[in-house]
Amino acid sequence: MAGCGFDDLPLTRPGPPLNAWGLYGEGDEYGRLNLITAQTVQAGLREAKEGITINLNLPLDTMPLNPTRAPLRHEIIHRTHCNDDHVSFNTQGSTQWDGFRHYPYLNYPEKQQYIYYGGMTSDEARDRSNHRCGIQNYAKKPISGRAHLLDIASFLERHQRSPLSYFDASTPIDLETLESCAAESRVVFKPGDILIVRTGWTEAFFGISEEERQSLPHRQKRGSCGVSSDPEVLRWHWENGIAAVASDAVAYEAYPSVNSPSIHETFLAGWGMPIGELFDLRELAAECKRLKRWTFFFTSMPLYVNGGIASPPNAQAVL
């Protein structure tokens, strides 16, 4: 089954569309992270040529974009001669990885409920005593290896194409744009690679006033740019052997999605592929442009929380 093609999906029948359940064995909890091997990590290390390290994380106290997510709370605890501190935060309040227990298939009539990766039910996914498919798996098998930046924002500007809409509408990045940007950047995908897409959302967010930023979570329709969830785009991700995806936007995919299944449903619940959101790609994009090289070593060590839903990525790029 390791050579499973996109047209072979879904593997579990009856089951939700495009699921790859069972591809890596019954009870698998790593999904596409199985594509990250010693060989793919070594290939990534060979891309660390200049020894330039770049942080990819926004501060943990960045304002959450979802009004239901609490902001970071930081308390300093003085103990006679030294200090401790206590930090409390929503793991999806700033730069984040979505875990496999975060987002399910929304329409699965055979089960009459929401279903997560491998057939996990809603009751199982919200049970703290059940650690199956928890975020600890991202820590046990760290998301590290060869990565590519597709700088879509710069590509659109360079070719005088219409810019993306960051806050007012769901602007999709189509397959032609992804492929053209990859070709222009001399990006060649291999199985186990990590794909990072820059939309320019971070610059737009910090370019508006504080009052405008505070109003974003309370919009009637919280639209955002991102990758299209058209079937041809899903096929492109699968056939390129991508192990994990991330972007600087709020959902990786254009939100709200106009397709079913969406990228969140397909990648998280169907394939077991991590989705990274709100990555800070400003310095990385500048260095890639300066070096004219958009492939690098990527490493991320998420929090080791048994049964966790999501995590800050603690990610860096090494050029």
Rank of each mutant, 00 (worst) to 15 (best):
S165Y: 04
Y166E: 02
D168N: 15
D168G: 12
D168E: 13
A169V: 04
A169Y: 10
S170V: 01
T171I: 00
P172T: 08
I173M: 04
D174V: 07
L175V: 07
E176R: 15
E176V: 14
T177D: 01
E179G: 01
S180N: 14
C181S: 14
C181N: 09
E184M: 12
E184L: 13
R186G: 05
R186L: 11
V187C: 04
F189S: 07
P191N: 10
P191F: 09
P191H: 13
G192K: 07
G192N: 02
D193T: 08
D193Q: 04
D193C: 05
L195Y: 03
L195R: 02
I196S: 03
V197D: 05
V197Y: 08
V197Q: 09
V197W: 11
R198N: 12
R198E: 12
T199H: 14
T199P: 14
G200T: 04
T202V: 11
T202A: 08
T202W: 01
T202C: 08
E203W: 11
A204W: 03
F206M: 06
F206C: 01
G207C: 14
I208S: 03
I208V: 14
S209T: 14
R213S: 01
R213T: 01
Q214K: 14
Q214F: 05
S215H: 09
P217V: 01
H218C: 02
H218D: 09
K221M: 08
R222A: 07
S224M: 01
C225R: 01
G226I: 05
S228N: 02
P231R: 06
E232L: 11
R235K: 15
W236C: 08
H237Q: 04
E239S: 03
N240T: 07
N240C: 07
G241Y: 03
G241D: 07
G241Q: 05
I242Q: 04
V250E: 03
Y252E: 04
Y255T: 07
Y255H: 15
Y255N: 12
S257N: 06
S262Q: 10
S262F: 08
S262I: 10
E265D: 10
E265L: 06
T266H: 05
F267M: 13
L268F: 06
L268S: 12
A269R: 04
W271R: 08
M273Q: 11
M273N: 02
M273A: 00
P274D: 05
P274C: 07
I275V: 15
I275T: 12
G276M: 06
G276D: 07
G276T: 04
E277R: 15
F279C: 07
D280R: 00
L281I: 05
L281W: 06
E283K: 14
A285E: 07
A285N: 12
A286Y: 02
E287D: 13
E287Y: 06
R290T: 14
R290H: 11
L291P: 05
L291N: 13
